[in-house]
Design a protein around this nucleic acid. Sequence first.
RNA 1: GGGACGGUUCCCGAGUGGCCAAAGGGGGCAGACUGUAAAUCUGUUGGCGCAGCCUUCGGUGGUUCGAAUCCACCCCGUCCCA
Length: 405
Amino acid sequence: MSAFDVLMERGFIEQLTHEDEIKELLEKENITFYIGFDPTADSLHVGHFIALMAMAHMQKAGHRPIALIGGGTAMIGDPSGKTDMRKMLTKEEIQYNSECLKKQMERFIDFSDGKAIMVNNADWLWNLNYIEFLRDVGVHFSVNKMLTAECFKLRMEKGLSFLEFNYMLMQAYDFLELHKRYGCVMELGGNDQWSNILAGADLIRRKEGKPAYGLTFKLLTNSEGKKMGKTEKGALWLDANKTTPFEFYQYWRNVNDADVEKCLALLTFLPMDEVRRLGSLKDKEINEAKKVLAYEVTKLVHGEEEAKKAEQAAIALFESGGDLSNAPTFEMPANLLGQKVIDVLVEIKAIPSKSEGRRLIQQGGLYINNEKVSDMDFIIDESLFKDGEMLVRKGKKTFYRVVLV
RNA sequence: GGGACGGUUCCCGAGUGGCCAAAGGGGGCAGACUGUAAAUCUGUUGGCGCAGCCUUCGGUGGUUCGAAUCCACCCCGUCCCA
């Protein structure tokens, strides 16, 4: 089975520059392709994870991936599909972020023995000569055409700075550069990158007279078409310090019934027969599929050990039994004993403000050791701790293990 | 550079001297119903020593008993003209 068939069957593909040619190419040859990641934050998130999965599938099929870190393009900022210009990052921030992304990617892709390449476009973008670049690359771009590009549509209403307008040229130039250096013939990316990918492929055809291809992935959306991978705290990060393995596990444990199969196909390596079987489970049964999904994705991102811990914690909290020690934990200094719940919870940062705590109690959403707290002045004392720990529950799904220290 | 219009609480967006912690929607949180799902319904959504008080409406000063609302200057954005 070729990489093309795998990506198609698992539902990765949204658009292709040349469907038939790409299909044939991926069947008959081992190619070099690239995916770019701009270091706009110090961690990758789920959106990037899809791309990494696609990269891994391609690599398994014998193709050579180039993971490009956009240290240069992050200096510009991609306006594609965004309503406003992003905050400009400093060179230092970008360098720091680049290092973080690099470490994360090494966990998913095998870079040993030249099986994959990692590059940073800062290496060639930071020292570009403006005049040379304009004469060399700029001539090949039509402003008229760019203005009609989908990726700028939103910005034609709210304003687009010249800085960001240049992003497309930078990315196109990357593709050309990788083509020359490594014989890279294909760029993959999220569907929001379609215009940029086309620009790069066009540039190679014009300047080199050689074919270049592009392919975009479906954005991870739920059955209502909304972007997935967002939590109340923002993105669902791959970094354990930004999104804990338990939170990460719970996110997938709670996906909509309708999205389970799609997620299994995109985010795990389970065989498609198994994916389809799990996806076809109905009603309560589908919870089994969700457990598999949560476990598998967490395993890929955080490793088997963390995945098991997260699973254990979930069993302990929701099904009773299992090992509680892996549940999210807060430490409570012993000198807080004798104070009101609200004060204690705010102090250990389990809730952000006392007003919120009062609201919780008023609405009957706070439990200690599974008993509802209805008294605003409820006192936390030592008798609540069994073996030095107490279980606080906020609403139905948020649990904290509080440990006395 | 000239002119027009804007900058409101997490987001969108009403408010144009006191009745404004500020309509409405989105999102969030909680409750009911459930399957740790979805949909639906209800409540809630600045902080605190919570029948009261304190801090918020781009910034700084001013007018006024009283300003998100009026005035001055400044900063930022969009549009039109140059």
